[in-house]
C-alpha cells in the first residue's frame, strides 16, 4: 500500500461506454466530501461506444492551477489500447491497475492486473466495472477513503443498482 500524499493525479483510461468519466466524477465527489480541491477533466471522441476514453482527476489540499494530469500517481487501464499507452510509466513508479479480461497480462513492478470486467460480470452487472476498479484502487492507494466513495454511491443510486454498486465497491476493496 502506498503512503498518504497531499496531492494525487489519477488517470482512468479505457473505451467509451465503460463508465470511466462517471468513475472520475465519483472519485472527485468523494474527495470533495473530504473537503479537498478537485479538478476532473475528460477526453473522448465522437463515438458513444468505443474509442479511447479518458477521465483525469487531480485531488489536492492546495489550489489546482493547471487542470490536466502531468505526473500521474495511479492509472486504471480497462482496455489493451489504454494499457499499451501507459504501461511504460510503471517503471517510473506509477501504479497501474489493468483489466486482464480485456488487456494482455504484463509482468513487472507496479503493474497490477485483475479481471475487473469478468468479476463485475460474475457479480451480475458488467456496468459496475468502474466502481469495482475504484474500490481496488482506493484500497491500494489512499486517494480517498472507501467510505467517502460509498457515500457518493449512496447519494447517486438507489434500490437494486445501489446494492449492486456497493457490492462491487466492496468486492474491489477485497481484491487488494
Amino acid at each position: 500500500m502506498m503512503g498518504k500524499k497531499e496531492r494525487y493525479e489519477i488517470i482512468l483510461a479505457g473505451s467509451g461506454g465503460q463508465g470511466l468519466v462517471l468513475a472520475g466524477i465519483m472519485l472527485g465527489e468523494a474527495a470533495v466530501l473530504e473537503g479537498r480541491n478537485v479538478v476532473q477533466t475528460q477526453s473522448y471522441g465522437i463515438a458513444s461506444r468505443g474509442g479511447l476514453s479518458l477521465a483525469e482527476v487531480i485531488i489536492d489540499w492546495a489550489e489546482i492551477i493547471y487542470q490536466q494530469v502531468q505526473e500521474p500517481d495511479i492509472i486504471l487501464a480497462l482496455t489493451e489500447e489504454a494499457l499499451e499507452k501507459y504501461a511504460a510509466l510503471a517503471e517510473k513508479g506509477v501504479h497501474i491497475f489493468y483489466d486482464t479480461t480485456l488487456a494482455k497480462r504484463r509482468a513487472g513492478a507496479n503493474l497490477t492486473g485483475y479481471p475487473f470486467t469478468k468479476i463485475a460480470s460474475d457479480l451480475g452487472n458488467v456496468a459496475a466495472v468502474n466502481i469495482l476498479s475504484l474500490g481496488a484502487m482506493t484500497a491500494a492507494v489512499p486517494m480517498v477513503k472507501t467510505e467517502s466513495l460509498a457515500g457518493v454511491i449512496r447519494k447517486r443510486f438507489q434500490g437494486k443498482v445501489l446494492e449492486m454498486n456497493l457490492k462491487a465497491l466492496q468486492k474491489g476493496v477485497e481484491l487488494i
Partner: peptide
Amino acid sequence: EIVAHMREA
C-alpha cells in the same frame, strides 16, 4: 471546451 467540461469544487 476544456473549461466547459471540467468539474471543480
